[in-house]
Amino acid sequence: MLFTAFRIAAIVEGITTLALFFVAMPIKYMLHDPLWVQIVGPLHGYAFLLYIALMAVLMRKAPWTNADVIRASLASLIPFGTFLNDGAIKRRWQTAQAI
């Protein structure tokens, strides 16, 4: 359940990052309409906070290495990062469940 919640949070965080960078910000700066950033920005902020909170809980349940924490943290900061990190997180969870 926790792992599924984290993966969903990662997907939402990734989608809101892409929406912010590739939709809202171009509209703001090219069309001079800040409304999209005012809507998508806070959604992304809440998704990011949820991602970090669930990551902190999950790394206690499944023993993460420092590299895992750094990779997951950096993944939340770059477009497509959470999507690319999903396979590594899934493998880490499966390894922890096998122990």
Results as ranks from 00 to 15, higher is better:
Leu43Met: 15
Met30Leu: 15
Gly14Asp: 02
Ser76Trp: 05
Ala98Glu: 12
Ile8Val: 15
Gly45Ile: 05
Gly41Ser: 09
Thr65Glu: 07
Ala72Asn: 09
Ala72Cys: 11
Pro63Thr: 12
Ala19Val: 11
Arg71Phe: 14
Val12Gly: 04
Lys61Met: 07
Leu18Phe: 13
Ala24Met: 10
Val37Asp: 04
Phe48Gln: 00
Ala9Asp: 01
Val40Met: 10
Tyr46Lys: 04
Trp64Gly: 00
Ser73Ile: 02
Gln94Pro: 00
Asp86Tyr: 12
Trp93Ile: 05
Val12Leu: 14
Arg7Met: 11
Phe21Ile: 13
Lys90Asn: 10
Arg7Trp: 04
Ser76Phe: 04
Ala47Pro: 01
Leu2Cys: 01
Phe22Cys: 11
Thr65Gln: 11
His32Leu: 14
Leu54Cys: 08
Ala98Leu: 12
Leu49Ile: 15
Ala19Phe: 13
Val57Pro: 00
Arg91His: 12
Met25Tyr: 11
Gly87Leu: 09
Phe80Asp: 02
Asp33Phe: 11
Ile15Trp: 05
Lys61Leu: 07
Phe83Thr: 03
Ala62Asp: 09
Gly87Thr: 11
Val57Glu: 03
Leu84Asp: 02
Leu50Asp: 01
Met30Glu: 14
Val37Gln: 02
Gly45Cys: 11
Phe3Ile: 02
Ala67Asp: 09
Asp68Phe: 02
Ala62Leu: 06
Pro63Leu: 04
Thr95Met: 13
Val57Ile: 15
Gly87Lys: 15
Thr82Gln: 07
Phe83Asp: 01
Ala88Thr: 00
Met55Asp: 00
Arg71Ser: 06
Arg71Tyr: 13
His44Tyr: 06
Thr17Asp: 03
Met59Lys: 14
Arg7Ser: 08
Met30Ala: 13
Lys28Tyr: 09
Trp64Met: 09
Leu18Gln: 06
Thr4Ser: 14
Ile89Ser: 02
Asp33Trp: 12
Val23Gln: 04
Thr17Glu: 10
Thr4Arg: 15
Gly41Arg: 05
Arg71Cys: 01
Leu20Trp: 08
Leu18Tyr: 09
Asn66Phe: 10
Ile99Glu: 13
Ile52Cys: 08
Val23Phe: 14
Leu43Val: 08
Tyr51His: 06
Phe83Cys: 08
Met30Val: 10
Met30Arg: 14
Pro79Arg: 07
Ala72Val: 04
Val37Tyr: 05
Thr95Asn: 12
Phe21Ser: 15
Leu54Arg: 06
Arg91Leu: 10
Arg7Asp: 02
Tyr51Ala: 03
Arg71Ile: 06
Leu77Asn: 03
Leu18Asn: 05
Tyr51Met: 04
Met1Phe: 08
Lys61Ile: 08
Ile89Leu: 15
Ala98Lys: 13
Val23Glu: 03
Arg91Val: 04
Val57Gln: 10
Ser76Tyr: 06
Lys90Trp: 08
Leu54His: 09
Gly45Lys: 07
Leu54Glu: 06
Leu35Val: 13
Val37Ser: 06
Asp86Phe: 12
Val57Asp: 09
Val57Asn: 04
Thr17Ser: 05
Leu77Arg: 05
Ala24Cys: 09
